[in-house]
């Protein structure tokens, strides 16, 4: 079996396993990274989102084979960054977290969005989050949190 090599949160990983496996399963089962959640398993909800080379991707429909040679960041790595701290403060201050199952994915979406657009408008934030379903919050507090993070974290993105 061919091996798959990639970087995970800065560290090199080599795995000898079926490359058709869902990257989400590899993360959660082989690598004990349970920050990405499974909400739908069909790319619809974004709970399983991770960053591949800095872009948001849904790991539940990402075959491991496509991760070969790429740079992966999950919430486990991202939470060690300064940008994360700004986002966390903003999510808490705006009351953006309810049940929380969507939130690690929302943080990944927030990062991917701010990385490409450091001062997004409300509408741009809504589009940036359009692949991340939240059933609890109605999104408005999450949108406010991202605006707050964009302001307070000026220069970080």
């Amino acid at each position: 079996m061919q091996s798959v090599k990639f970087r995970l949160n800065g560290n090199p990983v080599t795995l000898k396993t079926d490359p058709t496996r869902r990257f989400l399963d590899v993360l959660r089962e082989d690598l004990s990274h349970t920050g990405p959640k499974e909400g739908c398993g069909e790319g619809e909800c974004g709970a399983c989102a991770v960053l591949i080379d800095g872009h948001i991707t849904n790991s539940c429909i990402l075959p491991l084979g496509n991760v070969d040679g790429r740079d992966v960041m999950t919430i486990e790595g991202y939470r060690e960054t300064e940008r994360y701290r700004v986002l966390e403060e903003a999510y808490i201050a705006e009351g953006a977290v309810q049940c929380g199952i969507c939130i690690p994915g929302m943080i990944i979406a927030s990062e991917s969005l701010l990385h490409h657009n450091p001062s997004p408008t409300d509408d741009e934030i809504r589009i940036g989050l359009s692949g991340n379903l939240c059933r609890c919050t109605g999104y408005n507090m999450i949108i406010r949190a991202i605006k707050r993070a964009a302001e307070r974290g000026k220069g970080l993105w």
Binding site: T20, R21, R22, E42, G43, C60, I61, L62, D68, G69
Partner: peptide, 28 residues
């Protein structure tokens, strides 16, 4: 990208999707 194939052939969470042929990963 696999966004169609992985959904269409998905199995029980935790199991690899069931494909009719071996895959050639071309995305990268």
């Amino acid at each position: 990208g696999g966004t169609d194939m992985m959904v269409r052939n998905r199995a029980w969470a935790g199991l690899p999707p069931a494909f009719d042929k071996p895959l050639l990963f071309a995305f990268n």
